[in-house]
């Protein structure tokens, strides 16, 4: 198929960006979206233009590096996939595809389609861990039974890949689905209880400091999340936060 691409180009974080049109031809429907981008970039290299910078790495939907806003949707039109798993069979010959970076104050553009997500890092550093040192004497892994239900729910929350699609999708650029998922994982496990109060307070505080917006329960984040992280995690974080506020 032949396509027109409208792509956000921006030289660096200080430059003013703009949309630029490109044409690609003979795109196979079996290609992944990023393979289509590879074709474009090979074309640009060969004609002496600078290729489009975009983040990507594992190309199997787990590293969370890829981050394109395609036709107004985070990770494009398919559901339950990251951009690297999106395939060209979702598009038709002659389509015009708009490709933009994540847009959020807390995710400044570095270049073209690459954004800076270190705000997520700082939120995790504020409390996204259990304070346990490495030692050969940790108690036996089966010492504390954990109900299968709780373990499965914790796992569901823990599958967040930290891509930032929730933020990009949210009209308020809220990071509550991301933070809620991490808070939930630990809140659901006995190991996470000791530091539960400090954790949620510190992570929420950092989230606010980074300039992420608040949640107004639209639910778009859940729909666009490539890993299907549920809104329940936001509710759980709110409960944890309330509990922590009362306990102090």
């Amino acid at each position: 198929m032949n396509l027109t691409l409208k792509i956000w180009r921006q030289k660096d974080s200080n430059a003013k960006g703009q949309m630029v049109d490109y044409k690609v031809t003979d795109i196979s429907e079996h290609m992944s979206f990023l393979e289509m981008m590879d074709v474009l970039n090979e074309q640009l290299v060969n004609t002496g233009e600078e290729p489009v910078a975009f983040d990507h790495d594992c190309r199997e939907g787990i590293c969370g590096m890829c981050s394109l806003y395609i036709n107004g949707e985070a990770h494009g039109p398919d559901r339950g996939v990251t951009t690297c798993q999106l395939h060209m069979r979702m598009f038709k010959d002659g389509d015009t595809i708009t490709i933009e970076p994540w847009r959020a104050a807390a995710f400044p553009v570095i270049k073209d389609l690459v954004v800076d997500r270190t705000s997520f890092e700082r939120i995790q550093q504020a409390g996204g861990y259990i304070s346990v040192n490495t030692s050969g004497n940790t108690q036996d892994a089966n010492a504390i039974p954990i109900s299968k239900h709780a373990a499965d729910e914790a796992m569901d929350a823990a599958t967040c890949i930290g891509c930032g699609a929730c933020v990009a999708t949210c009209k308020n650029s809220s990071a509550m689905l991301f933070v809620g998922a991490k808070v939930s994982q630990y809140a659901l496990l006995p190991q996470g209880q000791v530091e539960a109060t400090d954790r949620v307070m510190n992570m929420v505080k950092q989230m606010d400091l980074e300039g992420f917006g608040n949640c107004t329960n639209t639910g778009a984040c859940e729909i666009e999340c490539p890993k299907g992280i549920s809104l329940e995690n936001i509710a759980r974080m709110n409960r944890e936060f309330l509990k922590a506020t009362i306990k102090g």
Binding site: I130, A141, I146, D152, A154, Q191
Partner: peptide, 25 residues
């Protein structure tokens, strides 16, 4: 020899390994 310690360490960190209905790994 150290393999068993790894599992203990990871569970202590909050790694949600699969469990059976009795709550064990």
């Amino acid at each position: 020899e150290v393999s068993a310690n790894i599992i203990d360490q990871c569970v202590a960190q909050g790694v949600p390994f699969a469990r059976d209905y009795g709550g064990l790994l």
